[in-house]
Design a protein around this nucleic acid. Structure first.
Lengths: 253, 253
DNA sequence: ATCTATTGTATCAAAATGATACAATAAAGT
DNA sequence: ACTTTATTGTATCATTTTGATACAATAGAT
């Protein structure tokens, strides 16, 4: 183990100790928030995950609820801390509350290894009920923020998740199911796109979310019939074929 | 105030004091469960509510999570305590977490009046994040269970709710929205009916849930086309007109 | 036997969806 | 300038689903 590693570990220990001391005064005990942050690039639906210390495991961005803070506000704060974005589309979809969900052997062992001796019973070892939200972001605007414990922030194809801790893979799947329902119902898809987009790009998004193909011509007819798109100028890609129109979602509210 | 009232209040006080002493050892702090128990009678969708002490206010059946108990199990236990039913259809739909939701003036004042002096800061005055479930029950099988604090258990038309405490009216409305989505998607309606039923009764249920009328003939065609009903014998009501068939849901799983 | 209220099924029109054909077009190749 | 290629936008036809209405069947009451 190199010098740098040791220094970094010591800093980590100090940070953790500080957190352990202050957390019980600042946050509600027993309740946490986890967020599934969906993004869309390379025609794939992705979720943002954090590397757990220097292990090969990843976890969802999460945090705790300040004692005088509303639950939704806590979720939004946690999201903003991680993406440096404002006005994010955020939807609560599930609350996980099995007793064994935070008692994962691997996580405890890894924590112990990384941060050394800390009180046997502490903030992290308590039972948490976790309220889960999903967020839809335009990934081109996200500025992933790392921190001392979560040194890497990475997008993962929802179909190619890494090793994850706790029940976070099950949570992502629940989030996806809910997103599928909401995409039809509330037309929330544009939150995943840039301001303007072509019909082809939108179709790719729908195909990624529903994990199935749509017939191009019928998809276009269906979407246009919803009357929520405004047709803009054409987008010339330089390719030698007909250029598609750009569209923008119009708020009907 | 009569003697009987005074005696009852003293018993109540004793019960509450006992609860306040033991609760922190038994239950998770900061997290509660509320349940919207839907039933169907007189062609109306109803929710079961509890009278708050001897006040004119009602609340949803709720409770706390034992320290070693899964969240879903806690919801099921609370439900069974209140309805004396097993195998209830139960679905988590929302978690309420505004800071002001348990700080309702009326509730605090009423509690104070009813149970007299108790510690100023206690189990009930802490902030709770409440995980909400809805349940679908065949109301003919429900045996509403009262207790010392909730002396009356009553079904209310979801469109004619009484005065409620906290955010429980908003929670019922969220539950209804979710039920509407699930009725289409998962065909959960039969949990609200008795074992056998006529097409007319089923239609009344759908009309109560969606709060709109359906055309009888088209409703029948649509439901039968789903292939989830088994047609049984006719039901002779004694009325002077054609008797309808009885149906039963068949599990396809 | 007739009447009334209701139920079950059929029928036709309208709307939505699925499958396919085809014209329009942006740029590259000749 | 003409042709070619890849893609896009729209049209068309068949099929399915939905909405509206007609009508025959039937359990009793008169």
């Amino acid at each position: 183990m190199s010098n740098i590693d040791i220094i970094s570990d010591k800093e980590l220990q100090k940070g953790i100790r500080e957190f352990l001391e202050t957390a019980p005064d600042i946050y509600m005990a027993g309740v946490s928030v986890d967020t599934v942050i969906f993004g869309f690039h390379n025609d794939k639906l992705k979720a943002l995950m954090l590397r757990f210390g220097n292990t090969p495991y990843f976890v969802l961005p999460g945090g705790y609820i300040r004692k005088e803070e509303n639950l939704d506000a806590a979720a939004m704060r946690i999201l903003q801390e991680r993406t440096a974005l404002k006005n994010i589309y955020l939807e609560q979809f599930y609350t996980a509350g099995n007793t064994n969900r935070s008692k994962e052997e691997v996580a405890l062992e890894l924590t112990q290894k990384m941060i050394g001796t800390i009180p046997n019973s502490n903030w992290f070892t308590q039972r948490f009920v976790s309220v889960c939200y999903y967020a839809l972001v335009d990934d081109t605007k996200v500025n992933p923020v790392t921190e001392i414990f979560f040194t890497e922030v990475k997008w993962f194809d929802v179909n190619k998740l890494p090793k994850v801790l706790y029940d976070h893979d099950a949570i992502i799947n629940k989030a996806l199911k809910r997103l599928q329902a909401d995409l039809d119902e509330k037309l929330v898809g544009f939150n995943l796109m840039s301001e303007t987009f072509t019909m082809g790009q939108l179709q790719k998004l729908y195909e990624a979310v529903y994990q199935k193909k749509f017939v191009r011509t019928n998809f276009q007819r269906k979407i246009l019939s919803l009357g929520v798109l405004e047709r803009l100028e054409k987008q010339y890609s330089g390719k030698s074929h007909k250029a598609p129109y750009l569209y923008r979602f119009v708020k009907t509210s």
